[in-house]
Amino acid sequence: MDYPDGLYYTKDHEWGMDENGILTVGITDYAQGELGDVVYVELPQEGTIIKAGEPFGVVESVKSVSDLYSPVSGEVVEINPDLEAEPETVNSSPYDRGWMIKIAMSKPAELEKLLSPEAYAEYLATLK
């Protein structure tokens, strides 16, 4: 299981990468493994205002549907255009080409509430 350094994590299995107040968000390697083959990702439109902890989209495998929860509040400034045609990227490259949305954070302090890679790893251990 892979959880790279330098990223923030949530208990809902999203990750975030901060670059000058813009948080790139996706789902973790653990999440994609639990879901199985991802067949569809439903993302919000650019410009949507979202709140920390609230659902911003949906990820589907063949026989399950899971909500995607935003780690932070802010405005969606970019969505990954490749996921519509190639949702399987979420499986093959969860931390890189499988990213989902970029959020211009309105409350960057929310990052402090997110998990470090170590804390996320510990959390995963409790799920076994």
Binding site: V62, S64, V65
Partner: peptide
């Protein structure tokens, strides 16, 4: 395309 259906998506 069963994720549209009640046995998976329930109230949605």
């Amino acid at each position: 395309m069963s994720t549209r259906e009640q046995h998976i998506r329930r109230e949605k």
